[in-house]
Amino acid sequence: MIAFWVLAPVMVVAAVAMVMARKAVHCALLLAVIMISLAVLYAVQNAPFLFAVQIIVYTGAVLMLFLFVLMLVGVDSSDSLVETLRGQRVAAVVLGLLFGLLVVVALSQATLGTVVGLSAASEQADGNVKGIAALLFSTYVFAFEVTSALLITAALGAMVLAHRERLTPKPTQREMVAQRMRDYATSGVHPGALPNPGSFARHNSVDTPALLPDGTPSELSISRVMRARGTVRDVSRDRLTERGIETETRQIEEGER
């Protein structure tokens, strides 16, 4: 009872935040909050087996898969929240509200009767897990077997979809060098390695851009993801310091010290 009234607002707020969150990673984390809360609600409702499954399968496996794919696709691919389809957002909100309202009205009109509770059933079946198992392997055994086929099909399908056939032989190092030189000749792409972060800067951590000879930061030395996140260290002050060093150096060279 207390658990519900505590968790329900949390879950609703988290859900709304998830829909409005700008970054996909935040969405995933908010979803995890909802799912764990749900697991607790399952436990509250005499469903310890589902509680475990919810945590292990959903929060553990499915959400991790989401995060994994998010990392593969790129964290910076968060979409702008500007709507492109005309009227889509308004219509969606209106329809969603209407839908929710209708369900609530329907529920408030329905007479559910007294709650039977699962304690009797659990006692009779010698526990929740055994009760579910007894049903699963008798009444629902055919459906259960079919789900196994479904899982295998899904696994195979994912493999087939993710698999990329190599159509050309893998380029050798020599060919890669040749290609790099050709690119340089035709479009002027720099053939060498990208500058490391932190070069000529005060710090050599990954968020510190390298400084070019004229003292400006090199965009190329910072990861695309960090640029997208806006966590690049500001090095404008370092240039001042640099000038100070330069002055000192010149003074030393000129023999003023």
Partner: peptide, 23 residues
């Protein structure tokens, strides 16, 4: 997303009909 919107609209309509009949 347009398709999904019309789908949701359809479901809402269906639900509306059910609720209206019940009420």
């Amino acid at each position: 997303r347009s398709y999904a919107l019309s789908m949701l609209g359809g479901s809402a309509l269906l639900l509306l009909a059910v609720v209206a009949v019940k009420l």
